[in-house]
């Protein structure tokens, strides 16, 4: 069965028809061509497909597209405006938090969700927020440093 649905992706309202079993990841990558969202395991374990669904990080490979009907999706492509990068993207570059880059989109979106929820996280909180995002290249250290560099200090 094919169902109509609406999705706001990176501030753009999109109407499309999808089969019931199609995942949000497949819709983003194959139907909408948003390939910044990666597939690393297809089982919700690696976090490479992390997107924000109404500002909450989710594994797009575990969510059926229809479950996202009427919701707002932010993918990595929605983070930068033209050539202006988001502060988290800048921090990742500056701190060398990127190696192969396959986990990077998901990492950045998880970091965004964390910093919106907790603008001044501790190192432990940063590490805890990344538990669902695997990185095999960096050993996480520079990713943690990049995110901590954005913590809004001085508010107690």
């Amino acid at each position: 069965m094919i169902y109509p649905m609406k999705l706001t992706v990176n501030d753009e309202l999109i109407e499309l028809e999808v089969p019931a079993h199609r995942t949000l990841l497949e819709v983003l990558r194959n139907d909408l061509g948003l390939k910044g969202t990666k597939e690393g395991c297809g089982a919700g374990e690696c976090g490479a497909c992390t997107v924000l669904l109404d500002d909450e990080p989710v594994n797009a490979c575990l969510i059926l597209a229809l479950q996202a009907d009427g919701k707002r999706v932010t993918t990595i492509e929605g983070l930068s405006k033209g050539s202006n990068l988001h502060a988290i993207q800048e921090a990742f570059i500056r701190h060398g938090a990127i190696q192969c880059g396959f986990c990077t989109p998901g990492m950045i979106l998880s970091a965004k969700a964390l910093l919106e929820r907790t603008p001044n996280p501790t190192e432990k909180e940063v590490r805890r927020s990344l538990v669902g995002n695997f990185c095999r290249c960096t050993g996480y250290q520079k990713i943690v440093e990049a995110i901590l560099s954005l913590a809004k200090r001085g508010d107690g």
Partner: peptide
């Protein structure tokens, strides 16, 4: 930083 880091952080 890696010379292609800007592409990588944007998912490009």
């Amino acid at each position: 930083p890696q010379i292609d880091a800007r592409d990588k952080v944007r998912g490009m």
